[in-house]
């Protein structure tokens, strides 16, 4: 019993699941296929899926960044704090992007140049960056941004498509080119497979890792600003717990948590899958909290199922010979 290679691929499984969920959603709700719902489906999780793109690079590289949700909160709080201190909003936005880049570079420094495990460093970041955000805004809520900033998150721009969605599409193309079409992308895979071998082959391991973490921080800051624009107000607990969804999207997309394998096609399918799943559960009146439980279960299953499949496969082969 051997399946043709194309059917054994993880992406095929994702596609089948996606079609199944889509079919259930169409049967369930007449509104599902409307343009409004499709845009809405992207719009409701747009910040998470933007960050998932850079998270893909980090995990393929064999590291993890748990601090992204806190950096999202931090960037929004920095912008709101500076704006309310009387600085013009464009400058405040620029400063908050810089703060995100600095936060990412700070993580990257400890991981790449001191050699600490990214799990510990970014866990410290998860707590610490949220802490800085709380120091800035305490328990207040900042609103009253200019209309053009709020429009950034909500107003349709090209047809029904919003700025956030355009940012996502451009970034998806960009990350695809970097990961699958550039020398840097190959280095990311090589380091994920065997960082020692990469170092001995003359790869500037430290510099690549620093670059990736800085990129992760910057993109998380951008996503945080888009989130603030969509909500129209900023609080200290913005985006708490988003790392769960983001990491689930990447791992469900077939990226190995041990690094070195996975591709953006899988991550793209996984994004569509999770968005449709959440949308479908929303249409079926399942609460956000149960949705989070389902996402948690998906996270565990996305690693457990391939593991089990491999174990069974090895046993099968052992019996044949």
């Amino acid at each position: 019993m051997t399946l043709p290679p194309i059917l054994r691929r993880w992406e095929t499984l994702l596609l089948v699941l996606l079609v199944a969920i889509g079919a259930v959603n169409i049967a369930w709700s007449p509104f599902y296929l409307g343009v409004g719902n499709i845009v809405n489906l992207f719009q409701l999780s747009i910040e998470k899926i933007i960050v998932a793109l850079t998270m893909t690079l980090i995990i393929v590289n064999g590291e993890i960044d748990l601090s992204v949700a806190s950096v999202m909160g931090l960037s929004a709080c920095v912008a709101a704090y500076l704006f309310h201190a009387g600085i013009a909003l464009p400058w405040a936005l620029l400063a908050s992007l810089a703060a995100g880049a600095a936060a990412g570079a700070f993580n990257g420094f400890w991981v790449a140049y001191v050699g600490l495990p990214s799990l510990a460093v970014t866990l410290a970041g998860l707590i610490g960056y949220r802490g800085i955000a709380r120091i800035l805004v305490e328990d207040r809520a900042y609103g009253g941004f200019p209309d053009w900033f709020n429009a950034l998150g909500q107003q349709p721009w090209i047809g029904p498509v919003t700025v956030s969605i355009v940012v996502f599409l451009v970034m998806f193309a960009g990350v695809a080119v970097v990961l699958h079409g550039s020398a840097l992308g190959r280095l990311v895979y090589v380091m994920g497979n065997n960082v020692q071998a990469a170092r001995y082959s003359g790869v500037r391991v430290k510099r690549v890792k620093l670059l990736l973490f800085t990129a992760s921080g910057t993109v998380a800051a951008l996503a945080g600003l888009l989130y603030a624009a969509r909500l129209g107000s900023v609080r200290g607990d913005m985006a708490v717990g988003f790392e769960l969804d983001i990491i689930t999207i990447v791992l469900l997309g077939g990226v190995s948590i041990f690094g070195g394998s996975g591709n953006l096609v899988g991550v793209g399918l996984s994004i569509l899958l999770i968005l449709n799943l959440r949308n479908g559960m929303g249409l079926a009146n399942i609460t956000g909290n149960t949705q989070t439980s389902v996402i948690g279960a998906l996270l565990v299953l996305s690693v457990l199922v391939p593991n089990m499949a491999q174990t069974l496969h090895t046993k099968w082969k052992g019996r044949e010979t």
Partner: peptide, 27 residues
């Protein structure tokens, strides 16, 4: 069980069960 016999890294299992257990509690 999931970490030892399922060979899923503990960070993944417990990040998942962090959400699942809290979800069960709320429901």
């Amino acid at each position: 069980v999931l970490v030892a016999w399922g060979r899923v890294p503990s960070i993944i299992v417990t990040l998942g069960s962090l959400a699942i257990y809290r979800g069960i509690l709320i429901d």
